[in-house]
Design a protein around this nucleic acid. Structure first.
Lengths: 333, 333
DNA sequence: TGCGGGTGTTTTAACGTTCAAACGCCCGTG
DNA sequence: CACGGGCGTTTGAACGTTAAAACACCCGCA
């Protein structure tokens, strides 16, 4: 493996000149630059990242803790990881994976990785209500950015990027309304979840703005399973005035609702319009396809990396809009 | 951030002695070791990984290319990544994620990461039939290990770990047979897939061994979707002698079959027993739960890391058995 | 008393890179 | 012709660690 020294000898210049050829080519006379580049090419030289990092004390690696919540499915994690990798690579960086206990118990792991200079900073995700990691990292002055807000805190300790769930569900409501729906229900999670309340608020406000009813049209599911979604749909359809549209908080709940609708001999997209959230792979694999709110993963990842690697002045809080992907579950054909 | 030098000064020993305290404590006199350790503790010293890697030319990082096949779902990728991370960490290593074009086009990326000393080696997955990456890496002498065999090659270029798909489907057949099933069908993929043919062979051989029929009991699906699975099930159930058991190549196909069975008013697990493959999160989220073959991710990951980091002498090919997770789709109750 | 040998510690040098300062050269100017 | 200044290049030192060799010390033994 060729080193800077060998390239320098081959090109008959000093070591520093070769270094400059790579890091500050404008400093070299064009002919020198050409000669050095030829030697680099010829010797197939690749700079040693460790030596560089040692000198500059920047490793160009970003830590990401691979989540392991056995009780919740990560159907879009591969999309997120791919986008995050790609965004990091576009700035010459990479993603380092690690595992850590959830919550504050895992913080020593973060600290250690940073102190040993394995990573420059962290991308957090799976943010929980009152997530303790933010304050901890902030206090230790470890760079980080969060995918997801810390709910129910007056001031959020650090920068974040998130998807505007309320705007998303409002989008779904307006879409269903445009397709002629007039009683649009919401299937969500318990009120303790900030994310769930956000999405529910979007649904409620949009309905109110359109003069649509909302009372008696919410069901809170304790679990994120098909059965829970199906049961919620059953509850709604058995009510005195059954809905003709359902906005579900997740794709899994929406699929459950679809199943229940089909089981009753109703046709999804015709008798009842249904929307999900996340545009997980499942949405495209069922029939009719599930209309769902796609999180703009590429934009999210790009924002995360930008904020982490060269933090702009001022508040670093980005709220991105999800995109409604329309399929058969909300519109026939 | 404290350095070795500062710890040495604090403990009134030489720098090398502190290094030894960490890497070869048996060389120190117990009282010196204690003194050094106290200083390490006191100064909260953490060794700088870059300096270490520069000196030893081992980065303790393993590259893994995050797959992006838009047409196939990665429902168990998070399980795999978590297991891989944990296994790597148990040897003091970590996983570095990157993206690369599929196939041989991506090889320069692998080469670059290795040449710049960002990683020591690679874990491959998503192995394709006649995967060209293996030969390429072998030729460049870049350490790697593959999760998945290279099918249809007389000699595989490098070490691998894989799940015995044939043993898995055989397990499923024997399970269904034990529950009284006598006509067990197989829903798979096109014959061009080595993985699919392996799993089909396991089904066929197990049926033959149990004197069960196999002719006319295979359907090859072009896609891995619920619809394809449902259509395959419909085809089988419409046949002259409909099956009472179905072994599906994937969870998605199995779920499709379940849907079709339910649609016909039949009861999964009672009228027809169904099994899937991978034990993806979906299997546990539907009702009845889907009986499925779980890949032993922790064992797989441990083997991968072991083979990569200290390769045992002799052939390094590991075939691990999947585990049948029984749920309602194959056994009532 | 001197010598070989083990044990524990220190010294020296190196890993491959970049930063900061120094250097040499050429050119325009007074 | 001396001088200042810009440009392109080189020199020296440092980043924090570890391998290998050198060293100091103590002990047992001749």
């Amino acid at each position: 493996m060729a080193t800077l020294k060998q390239v320098a000898a081959h090109a008959e210049v000093s070591v520093q000149t070769v270094s400059n050829a790579l890091n500050a080519p404008h400093r070299l006379r064009p002919d020198t630059l050409a000669r050095v580049n030829r030697s680099i090419e010829l010797l197939n030289y690749r700079p040693n990242r460790n030596a560089r990092s040692l000198r500059t004390s920047a490793v160009e690696l970003i830590g990401y803790c691979v989540p392991s919540w056995p009780n919740r499915t990560h159907l879009v994690m591969d999309q997120f990881l791919h986008a995050l990798c790609a965004a990091a690579e576009s700035t010459g960086r990479h993603i380092l994976l690690f595992t850590a206990p959830p919550g504050v118990d895992g913080m020593p792991v973060y600290d250690d990785l940073h102190a040993r200079r394995l990573v420059d900073g962290f991308v957090l995700s799976q943010t929980e209500t009152r997530d303790p990691r933010h304050g901890w990292l902030k206090e230790k002055q470890i760079p980080f950015v969060s995918f997801g807000r810390v709910w129910k805190e007056s001031t959020q300790p650090g920068p974040w990027v998130d998807v505007d769930g309320a705007a998303g569900t409002a989008l779904a409501v307006r879409h269903l309304h445009g397709a002629g729906r007039r009683r649009i229900a919401f299937i969500g999670w318990p009120k303790t979840s900030g994310l769930a309340e956000d999405r529910r608020a979007g649904w409620r406000n949009a309905c109110t703005a359109l003069d649509l009813p909302t009372t008696g049209l919410t069901v809170h599911c304790a679990e994120d399973t098909l059965d829970a979604g199906a049961q919620a749909a059953a509850e709604l359809l058995d009510g005195p005035q059954p809905p003709d549209g359902i906005v579900a908080l997740s794709d899994v709940l929406a699929l459950g609702a679809l199943r229940e609708i089909t089981r009753r001999g109703l046709v999804p997209g015709v008798d009842v319009g249904v929307t999900g959230f996340d545009d997980s792979p499942l949405a495209d694999v069922v029939s009719p396809g599930l209309t769902s709110l796609r999180q703009p993963m590429d934009d999210i990842a790009a924002e995360l990396i930008t904020i982490l690697t060269d933090p702009p002045a001022g508040p670093t809080e980005r709220l991105l809009l999800p995109e409604l992907v329309v399929r058969g579950s909300s519109a026939p054909g």
